[in-house]
């Protein structure tokens, strides 16, 4: 099986405080990998290290066989990332923001973007500053998917989305995954993991614990959140 994401002994310190400690993780091609854990456990630190936003202290990360530090730009060509907050330039219109993301990639993604906007019911004429969190998230989904990347990295993607849009979002993911895309999904929602993920891991206090199966019960899940 081809390893799409390979994290080896990742450690990231914030001064004296350890963000993540000795995290190792493998995500194979075509997987929808659930990445769980309480707030501050280190999920976002791991994701932000993968994308080059953070300079980590030890370890290495390979995405699509490329080194996350040396081949940073090449990796991002093949990644669709959706941050948890989904902020854009407020003065831009939705269509400008979507086109801008494609322009920086040097691609014409208008056809795929139109398809995604229709599926997610995105009003492309609105100004970003007038959008609710849910609508900003929809724009973020379009920006992450429009270039048909090989890897999706989603950080708490469904917060703010209504149930119908959540379903549409996962339908879209499954559609791309069936064509060979791999998805790393950071979430607090157990039902999403149970329903859609094929493998899962939980982060707690900066350390990663692999789960035998993503289908875990509520109590077992909540135990990871308890002190």
């Amino acid at each position: 099986m081809e390893h799409v994401i390979e994290i080896n002994h990742l450690t990231k310190n914030y001064g004296k405080h350890k963000g993540v400690e000795d995290v190792s993780l493998i995500v194979d091609k075509g997987d929808i990998f659930g990445f769980l854990g309480p707030n501050g456990a280190g999920k976002s630190t791991t994701i932000r290290s993968m994308l080059g936003f953070l300079r980590f202290s030890e370890g290495n990360i390979k995405i699509l066989g490329m080194d996350s530090v040396k081949d940073h730009e090449e990796i991002l060509k093949n990644v669709g990332y959706m941050p948890s907050e989904a902020w854009f330039y407020g003065s831009m219109s939705v269509e400008d923001a979507i086109r801008y993301a494609a322009d920086v990639r040097g691609l014409d993604c208008s056809e795929e973007a139109a398809k995604l906007c229709e599926a997610l019911k995105v009003d492309t004429k609105k100004k970003i500053r007038n959008l609710s969190l849910g609508n900003r998230k929809k724009v973020s989904i379009v920006c992450a998917m429009q270039h048909k990347p090989k890897v999706f990295i989603f950080d708490e993607p469904t917060g703010g989305l209504d149930p119908l849009m959540q379903k549409t979002f996962f339908d879209l993911i499954e559609g791309y995954v069936s064509e060979g895309t791999t998805c790393l999904l950071s979430t607090h929602v157990l039902t999403e993991v149970n329903k859609y993920c094929r493998h899962a891991a939980i982060m707690r206090e900066g350390k990663l614990i692999m789960l035998d199966s993503p289908k875990i019960g509520d109590e077992e899940f909540l135990d990871f959140y308890r002190d």
């Binding site: 994308l51 730009e73 090449e74 990796i75 991002l76 060509k77 941050p83 993301a101 920086v104 920006c143």
Partner: peptide, 8 residues
Amino acid sequence: EFLMALPV
């Protein structure tokens, strides 16, 4: 994050 997640 929006800007830096683009391949640049």
